[in-house]
């Protein structure tokens, strides 16, 4: 085993000398942090901030396990640089429950068995939250189109559709 030095473990991600500072609001909390230019948003959230509810499933912008809301719109955080969100608002799965009350989408996923292994679930729920904010009463077809960028391997999607319909109903058509 060829090796060099003992590890200098100061940060879970590299930060070069000339690191950039970004100011970002995550789940209503302001952060002012140094990041390397190439840091992916998903690694910033998971490895730096410990918000591990946002998952990584594919690396090529196909699976949607890393979906977060960027200024209210769902995006794939594995394909966004942390520096790109400087000055913007991020919402992750950890920000759905407010004041000890679950978001209707979270209730819907539990009530309709919209999850099995739970790995795609945070991303799927973030997409659902954004859908219902835009379209409070989506049809099955509209739901299926909206979640078509989020892969699920366990549920066959049926109960995810029902979960989102359940949430739409409990939201009373309001987001």
């Amino acid at each position: 085993m060829a090796s060099t030095a003992i590890p200098r473990l100061t940060s879970p991600l590299p930060i070069k000398g000339a690191a950039r500072r970004i100011h970002v609001t995550i789940n209503e909390v302001d952060f002012d942090m140094a990041v390397e230019d190439r840091t992916l948003l998903v690694h910033f959230l998971r490895d730096v901030l410990g918000l591990t509810g946002t998952h990584i499933g594919c690396d090529t912008t196909h699976c949607g396990a890393c979906t977060v809301l960027l200024d209210g719109k769902p995006v794939k955080s594995c394909t966004v640089l942390a520096v790109q969100v400087d000055g913007r608002k991020i919402r992750t799965v950890e920000g759905l429950e407010t004041g000890g009350k679950l978001h209707p989408v979270q209730d819907g996923f539990a009530a309709e068995h919209g999850l099995q292994c739970g790995f795609c679930t945070p991303g799927m729920m973030m997409t659902a939250v954004a859908l219902l904010a835009k379209n409070p009463n989506p049809s099955e077809d509209e739901i299926r189109r909206a979640i078509s960028g989020n892969l699920c391997r366990c549920t066959g999607y049926m109960n995810i559709v029902k979960a989102i319909q359940h949430a739409a109903k409990t939201q009373g058509g309001k987001s």
Partner: peptide, 13 residues
């Protein structure tokens, strides 16, 4: 589900 819907599952990564 209580942990998964909160993003509090504990996966290897």
């Amino acid at each position: 589900d209580a942990r998964f819907i909160r993003g509090k599952g504990n996966y290897v990564d």
